[in-house]
């Protein structure tokens, strides 16, 4: 692919947009991911698994929201428009899309975990659904591209320092005590996903989570990213996930 846009959103976040050098983008489900090759990076070796943040059918571009956490993502963030980006996509199994427009879907994201929820919102909107977003971050400055999310549904936010929205964690937001949902789809740090899963279980709400276990291949070959499941034992997050219904997992919730 060729990078069509590289936008530094924040000190630690960069938005990459890319288009295939030839042909069209394959069909992608929200919640699926891509494996991005990090070139000229002697301190790393493997690709970086990154969520599909958004897809534009009009321009034929896919976008990735990359948080700079180490050497690999630092190299990705240093790319420029016009650079080549070697990408394997789409990988894994995404979020469950609603069966009818009447389904009330809550999309919960924390930190860079908000990334796949934008494309989820877009796909739901295309089906005539209007999801509710509940997005959390450390500070208001870490909440990125909120205007994009609000195109597709109501957006509620929490910040740990109270600089935007309600102060605290997403599970403390008043929305959860005032509204009921048919399903909650979550992506974020594991402690946050566990807390949301607990809330979902206690309120008998269907809930799925997107895991980000460390992986090498992304193709189900290396068997590194396994999650222990109730029915099938160790399964590869890259193939059977990254999205799992909480009932499939052996989390203590």
């Amino acid at each position: 692919m060729t990078l069509t846009e590289v936008c530094q959103l924040h000190q630690r976040y960069v938005l990459l947009k890319a288009r295939p050098q030839q042909g069209d983008l394959p069909a992608m489900q929200p919640g699926q991911f891509a494996q991005l090759l990090v070139e000229n990076s002697p301190a790393t070796y493997l690709r970086r698994p990154i969520s599909i943040h958004d897809v534009s059918a009009d321009t034929g571009e896919v976008s990735f929201l990359v948080q700079v956490v180490g050497e690999g993502t630092r190299h990705l963030a240093a790319l420029s428009q016009g650079d080549r980006l070697n990408v394997l996509l789409p990988l894994g199994r995404g979020f469950t899309l609603p069966q009818s427009p009447a389904e009330r879907i809550l999309l919960v994201g924390g930190g860079v975990g908000v990334a796949p929820l934008l494309y989820m919102g877009r796909c739901m909107a295309a089906m005539g659904c209007r999801p509710t977003f509940l997005l959390g971050a450390r500070t208001g400055a870490d909440l990125l591209r909120l205007d994009q999310y609000s195109q597709f549904g109501e957006v509620y936010v929490t910040t740990e320092d109270g600089s935007m929205g309600e102060k605290g964690f997403v599970t403390q937001h008043s929305l959860l005590s005032s509204q009921r949902f048919d399903r909650i789809s979550v992506c974020g740090p594991k402690p946050m996903m566990v807390a949301v899963a607990r809330y979902a279980k206690a309120s008998a709400t269907d809930c799925e989570v997107s895991l980000e276990n460390m992986m090498a291949c992304g193709l189900g070959a290396c068997l590194c990213c396994v999650e222990d499941t109730a029915q099938q034992g160790h399964v590869c997050v890259c193939q059977e996930g990254p999205v799992f219904n909480i009932n499939e997992l052996k989390w203590q919730i």
């Binding site: 002697p42 301190a43 790393t44 070796y45 493997l46 690999g72 276990n213 460390m214 992986m215 090498a216 290396c222 068997l223 590194c224 990213c225 396994v226 999650e227 222990d228 034992g233 160790h234």
Partner: peptide, 23 residues
């Protein structure tokens, strides 16, 4: 064999460690 528990890999400079354990 179920193999070893997660985490099973760590990236290193130009390489990686794994302890899959023959799953």
């Amino acid at each position: 064999r179920q193999g070893n528990p997660y985490p099973r890999m760590a990236e290193t400079a130009m390489g990686m460690l794994n302890c899959v354990g023959l799953q």
